[in-house]
C-alpha cells in the first residue's frame, strides 16, 4: 500500500533521514520505534508532504506522491495524527472534529462517523461545545485520534499517541487503535517510544536509528531481539 524508497530529508543543512526505506501493506499495523531524534516524526512529516524529501521515492497504491502537496496527499487517504496532539485550542471540540472532515462532502456519513467517535469516547460528546485548549491531555489525545478518524483514512499515521498519558489511558488508546485497525480495516503506521506496547499490537516493526533503518522484522521477533530489548524495552 505504502512504499518508501531510500528517502533523504533535510532540515536546512541537517540531514534527518539518511536513506530510509519502509513498506506497509494494506490492513496491517506497522510499528516504528526509535529513540528521540532518530527521525521518526520526520519520516511521518515527509510521507505527508510537509517536509518533502530531497531524494528518494514514496509510492502510495503504486503512485509516486513525494512531490504532492500535503492537502493532496491527505485527500488520497493518508492521515497523520501528529506528535503533541496539536488540537486547535480556540476551536471547540465539535469544530476540531469538523476540521477532520474538512474535505468531505458526504454529510450523512460525516454525521454517522461523528456518532461513531462519540461512542468510542463519550467524554468528547459531553464536551463538544468546550474549547479544545481547555481539555486535559488525555481528552486531547482522544480528540486528536477522533479528528483523524473523521477524515475516514485509508492509512493512519500515529505519532506517539501515548505520550504523556496515564497508564490507564494508554491502554484505552491502544485498544482503540486495535479496534480502528480491525473494524475499519484501516492500515496503521504507529510511531512509539513505548516500544513494547506498540510491538504487541503490531504485525511488523522497524527500528530507526540516526536517520537510518537499523532493524526490521515481524513484531514478535523484534520483541525477542537482544539489541531491541536492551535499547528500547528497558532491558528486561
Amino acid at each position: 500500500m505504502l512504499e518508501v524508497r531510500d528517502i533523504r530529508t533535510f532540515y536546512g543543512a541537517i540531514q534527518a533521514l539518511k536513506g530510509v526505506s519502509i513498506w506497509v501493506t494494506e490492513g496491517e499495523i506497522v510499528a516504528l520505534i526509535g529513540a528521540n531524534g532518530a527521525g521518526k516524526s520526520t519520516l511521518l512529516m515527509t510521507i505527508c508532504g510537509v517536509v518533502p524529501p530531497r531524494s528518494g521515492e514514496i509510492l502510495f497504491m503504486g503512485n509516486p506522491i513525494q512531490n504532492l502537496s500535503p492537502d493532496r496527499i491527505f485527500s488520497l487517504g493518508i492521515v497523520q495524527v501528529p506528535e503533541g496532539r496539536r488540537i486547535f485550542p480556540l476551536l471547540t471540540v465539535q469544530e476540531n472534529l469538523d476540521m477532520g472532515a474538512y474535505l468531505r462532502n458526504d454529510k450523512g456519513a460525516v454525521r454517522s462517523d461523528m456518532e461513531y467517535v462519540f461512542s468510542i469516547f463519550p467524554r468528547l460528546a459531553e464536551r463538544r461545545r468546550q474549547l479544545g485548549g481547555t481539555l486535559s491531555g488525555g481528552e486531547q489525545q482522544m480528540l486528536a485520534l477522533s479528528r483523524g478518524l473523521m477524515a475516514r483514512p485509508r492509512m493512519l499515521l500515529l505519532d506517539e499517541p501515548s505520550l504523556g498519558l496515564a497508564p490507564v489511558l494508554v491502554a484505552t488508546i491502544f485498544d482503540t487503535i486495535r479496534h480502528i485497525n480491525r473494524d475499519n480495516s484501516t492500515t496503521l503506521l504507529l510511531v512509539e517510544q513505548k516500544a513494547a506496547m506498540a510491538l504487541h499490537i503490531a504485525g511488523r516493526g522497524y527500528v530507526l536509528e540516526n536517520g537510518t533503518i537499523k532493524l526490521q522484522d515481524i513484531a514478535d521477533q523484534l520483541l525477542c531481539n537482544k539489541e531491541v530489548k536492551s535499547a528500547y524495552l528497558g532491558g528486561s
Partner: peptide
Amino acid sequence: RAVAQDKTMAMLLGV
C-alpha cells in the same frame, strides 16, 4: 481559524 492557530496541523487535515 485553524490556519491561524496551527498552520502545519491545518495542512495535515487537507487544508
